[in-house]
């Protein structure tokens, strides 16, 4: 080995070793600060982790844009949903009086709320943009209870890190981190453009997470589970979306 190539090798070592140590340290700091998404492994893990970490730092206290009433879309689009189950149709026929939102997991007082009970929380409204990952969008006014008020009511334990939510559409479930779960614009929504939330748009009860794409705003929610780890849910990737190839975090 000649002098020049040995020097090159040593120089490469001097760069590579601290580089590797630095990366490992960065990964540990990111993990500890909740900057690593549940779908961080695999081919697209690096990009997904960069996006999630960068946005969690940048959007710590940011609010989704709110619009004027005049900017509400004249023609919002409801999108397709799976065929309604007999159970849903039965609840719908009865005016959803028997609909329940179950709250369990890391909470001091697990509970079940009817739509009327959700409506008895302080009502909030927002006029926000809903964008689908496909590219289409609309602006609408949403009314609902703050998810943080519901979590407060059941005394969520302080070590909780995520809220998992289930719905009536078979196979669909989602989760969000505390940055979004406790966010002042994250609603358990029951109102739409001044009226009741139509079934096509997710009625009687829908999650509304305006800082992420539409698929995080799950329709027909029936259950919230508070947890400190997503590993035990499904394949451990955070939600149904990564199980069929889509990103868990949809703030892009």
């Amino acid at each position: 080995m000649n002098d020049i190539s040995r020097r090159k090798l040593m120089r490469a070592g001097v760069v590579a070793l601290p580089g590797a140590v630095g990366l490992a340290a960065a990964a540990r700091i990111a993990e500890r600060n909740g900057l690593v998404p549940p779908d961080h492994s695999g081919l697209y893990g690096p990009g997904e982790t960069l996006t999630y970490a960068a946005q969690r730092v940048l959007t710590a206290h940011s609010l989704a844009r709110e619009f004027d009433r005049s900017q509400i879309s004249k023609k919002p689009f409801a999108n397709e949903t799976p065929k309604k189950t007999p159970e849903f149709l039965r609840l719908e026929a009865a005016g959803f009086v028997d609909w329940r939102l179950k709250v369990d997991g890391m909470v001091a007082r697990p509970a079940e709320f009817s739509i009327a009970q959700i409506r008895s929380f302080p009502a909030h409204s927002q006029i926000t943009h809903l964008a689908c990952e496909e590219g289409w969008s609309y602006v609408a006014e949403w009314t609902g209870a703050l998810l943080s008020d519901v979590l407060h009511e059941v005394s969520m334990r302080p070590e909780a890190k995520f809220v998992v939510y289930d719905c009536m559409d078979k196979g669909w479930w989602e989760s969000i981190d505390m940055a979004d779960a406790l966010h002042p614009q994250t609603f358990v929504a029951y109102g739409f453009n001044g009226g009741e939330l139509p079934v096509a748009f997710g009625g009687p009860l829908r999650m509304r997470v305006p800082r992420q794409l539409g698929y995080k705003s799950l329709k027909y929610i029936t259950r919230l589970t508070v947890t400190d780890s997503l590993k035990k849910f499904g394949k451990g990737l955070g939600s149904a979306e990564p199980e069929f190839g889509y990103a868990w975090y949809a703030g892009i």
């Binding site: 990009g47 996006t51 190839g245 889509y246």
Partner: peptide, 15 residues
């Protein structure tokens, strides 16, 4: 094809 396309789109954008 949106799932992997979106993952790869943003990863390529970062790189």
């Amino acid at each position: 094809q949106n799932g992997w396309s979106r993952y790869l789109h943003f990863q390529s954008a970062w790189l």
